[in-house]
Nucleic acid binder design. Structure first.
Length: 420
RNA sequence: GGAAGCGUGCCGGAGCGGCCGAACGGAACAGUCUUGAAAACUGUCGUAGUUAAUAGCUACCGUGGGUUCAAAUCCCACCGCUUCCUCCA
């Protein structure tokens, strides 16, 4: 949620953000009004309650003869307090309902507008060109016997697959390379739970707009996570963390599950969009003033991975209207996918400022020893989808795929994957 | 899955329904003493909301309800933990 103090001190900043996102800005005034109403009703309740507390103390101290009268007076007060509490609670609920609808305040440099209004920050590398008939990753996966989609569908239905032989090893190599890189940069490896409780899922904001994206197990009242971000964000929930020695950084490795409910018919070919995949996710807890710098660090690591995989890619600054509700800024990097003749997203890195941490109640102590809400950031370092770009980019005329040099140490030194 | 027990502040650990935001011990921090340290002594020592306020008031003793003039203390449900049995990657 947004900072309630900002609502009181600078509502115009929130309105500007709402405009940039293409969201309703009148909700900001509604929230301010609800906030004032709540604070007034809270004061009324609290002063009545103080009166009641004082009256109850008198009863305890009173003599036997005086008690009945005092208790009767207390009963009247108790009713008043109960009524005032109900009003205050209702006012608070109303305020929360409104304030939770307001999405994170966008950083001012972020381009306004919708999905198509992104700004290209840079393009790196040259698009793969082939002097032979290039194959897509599905055909390569089949001829190399490393991706078995047919049997994936037989066992689990559409958008499922087996990674086999070098395919399985390639994915593990990619994940391990990413984990090594992250570890070198102060990220602590974390293998996370992928089933979480409803509170955690709701706390990270995934039960709102994305709720039909998520697998749910009614028998156990647990949700399957679509990213380890859920567990990583929940990790320090309700804690006062120590940031005096710098940010807390985690590299979470998990399988991710997504229903892809809203994308029927989209990317149905291959393993670009699937129900289950693996991902290595970076997650940082930082002081709010360090968040933008940390965001660039995450991006730099993502680029290092893309370059190590010898992919051609571009980095975009996502437009405000295309940001998730928790993000104040998002950098995506997209790799060139030859068979599609376009860039496809391989990493996504969001600066959630204090928005997510406030909801999860993650705080730290600042220099004065006071508690303050931390900022959180996340970014992708590797996913199964990367295999698509790697296989297609590095295919060769004889139908083999050259393994990028940086990955070879993780594959027993193998340099190429050849058809059987 | 069956049985029993337990959930209190940074940790340990008390707490007849009113005198409990919570004894006591430890840790931590500041100071006195000391050349310095240790010891000893003194003090500070939870979080949040509201308010102009580091004053006051309010809330929080696993979570949520309930009983009562009054709840850490009584009742109910839920969650978690421990031990034993059962089972087991």
């Amino acid at each position: 949620m947004i900072d309630p103090n900002l609502l009181r001190e600078n509502p115009d900043a929130i309105k500007a953000s709402q405009r940039a996102r293409g969201n309703d800005e009148s909700i900001v005034d509604d929230a301010a009004k609800a906030d004032a109403t709540w604070r007034k009703s809270l004061q009324e309740y609290e002063s009545l309650r103080a009166e009641q507390n004082a009256a109850a103390k008198l009863v305890g101290a009173a003599s036997k003869e005086d008690r009945p009268a005092l208790i009767a007076a207390g009963q009247v007060l108790a009713d008043k307090v109960k009524a005032a509490l109900e009003i205050a609670n209702a006012a608070e609920a109303h305020l929360n309902e409104i304030i939770w609808k307001i999405e994170n305040v966008v950083i001012t440099e972020v381009p306004s507008g919708g999905e198509e209004n992104f700004k290209v920050i840079k393009e790196v590398g040259t698009h793969a060109k082939f002097d032979f008939e290039a194959q897509d990753h599905v055909a390569l996966g089949e001829s190399l016997d490393i991706i078995d989609i047919e049997r994936g569908v037989k066992v689990s239905g559409s958008r499922f697959y087996f990674l086999k032989g070098w395919g399985a090893r390639l994915e593990l190599a990619l994940m391990n390379m990413a984990l090594d890189l992250a570890t070198k940069h102060d990220f602590t490896a974390l293998i996370t739970p992928t089933l979480v409780r409803p509170e955690v899922m709701a706390g990270t904001g995934f039960l709102g707009e994305h709720s039909d994206e998520i697998y749910y197990l009614p028998a156990d009242d647990l949700y399957l996570t679509g990213t380890s971000e859920v567990a990583l964000a929940g990790y320090h929930r309700d804690e006062i963390i120590d940031l005096t020695n710098g940010p807390l950084r985690y590299a979470g490795w998990s399988t991710c599950y997504r229903r892809e409910a809203g994308s029927a018919g989209r990317d149905t070919r291959g393993i670009l969009r699937v129900h289950q995949f693996n991902k290595l996710e970076m997650f940082s807890y930082v002081k709010p003033e360090d968040a933008e710098q940390e965001h660039l660090k995450l991006l730099a690591l993502e680029e290092a991975m893309l370059q190590a995989c010898e992919l051609s890619y571009r980095v975009i600054d996502t437009a405000a209207g295309d940001l998730g509700s928790s993000a104040a800024r998002k950098y995506d990097s997209e790799a060139w996918v030859p068979s599609q003749n376009q860039y496809r997203e391989l990493t996504s890195s969001s600066n959630c400022t204090t928005f997510q941490a406030r909801r999860l109640n993650v705080r730290y102590r600042n220099e004065d020893g006071k508690t303050a809400t931390a900022a959180t950031l996340n970014g992708t370092l590797a996913t199964t989808r990367w295999l698509v770009a790697i296989l297609e980019t590095h295919q060769q005329a004889d139908g083999s795929v050259r393994i990028p040099a940086a990955l070879r140490p993780y594959l027993g030194g193998a340099e190429v994957i050849s058809p059987k």
